[in-house]
């Protein structure tokens, strides 16, 4: 790590964002380093595909680099980046095959004990949901967003968001019943 990189890594985020906004590439790289686990994880939940998720996450950051000068308040960076990520995902959905989403989930499988196994099963279950239902579920459960926030971020009507979350929840409850009914889920945390 160069002294400059070391300095940037210890700099408060608001200052790093300010530097990145003015075109400092080292500061932007530091922002990517700090935010990449979150954005990649979000994209993995949305897509269920590690390679695609990483490619989309890279697109999110490239888009962020291009539009960062438009960001007015540095304190809103997190929400702004999430909006960029959702837009990248929605753009991807528009380009992708809508009938591709026909994965089957074997709900007789026993519950996994480790986080990686749980994540894999969760992604499999999410993959059975239609794309917009999956997005609403991910934003609600993974990001902890309210229905109003989801509607605002995705441009979907509030009623549609509510019904997507309700329908998605019911489907996940059915598919992941092995986890929901087993107390070992609590224990494995």
């Amino acid at each position: 790590m160069t002294p400059a990189q070391d300095y940037v890594s210890r700099t408060p985020e608001a200052l790093v964002i300010g530097l990145a906004r003015s075109g400092d590439r080292q500061a932007f790289a530091e922002l990517v380093r700090r935010r990449q686990p979150w954005i990649r994880d979000l994209m993995r939940r949305c897509s269920g595909d590690v390679t695609l998720a990483d490619d989309l996450a890279q697109q999110v950051f490239v888009q962020a680099w291009r539009t960062l000068p438009q960001l007015q308040q540095t304190s809103r960076f997190g929400a702004w980046l999430k909006r960029v990520a959702i837009n990248v995902w929605l753009q991807h959905l528009r380009k992708s095959d809508p009938l591709k989403n026909a994965d089957e989930y074997d709900d007789t499988r026993p519950a996994q004990q480790d986080a990686a196994g749980i994540a894999m099963d969760l992604d499999r279950a999410l993959a059975t949901l239609s794309e917009h239902v999956r997005l609403c579920i991910v934003l609600s459960y993974h990001e902890g967003m309210t229905h109003e926030q989801i509607a605002n971020f995705t441009g979907l009507p509030l009623g549609t968001v509510k019904s997507h979350v309700r329908r998605g929840t019911q489907r996940l409850q059915k598919l992941l019943s092995a986890y929901i009914e087993t107390p070992s889920t609590e224990e494995s945390k």
Binding site: Q36, P37, A115, H147, T169, L176, I180, K189
Partner: peptide, 24 residues
């Protein structure tokens, strides 16, 4: 419509702190 706490737990467990590797 409130979130299902069991599903919330499942999502929280599946969250992963990914290593940077060559991503940046």
């Amino acid at each position: 419509f409130d979130r299902d706490p069991a599903l919330e737990n499942l999502f929280a467990t599946a969250k992963k702190d990914l290593e940077d590797d060559a991503f940046t």
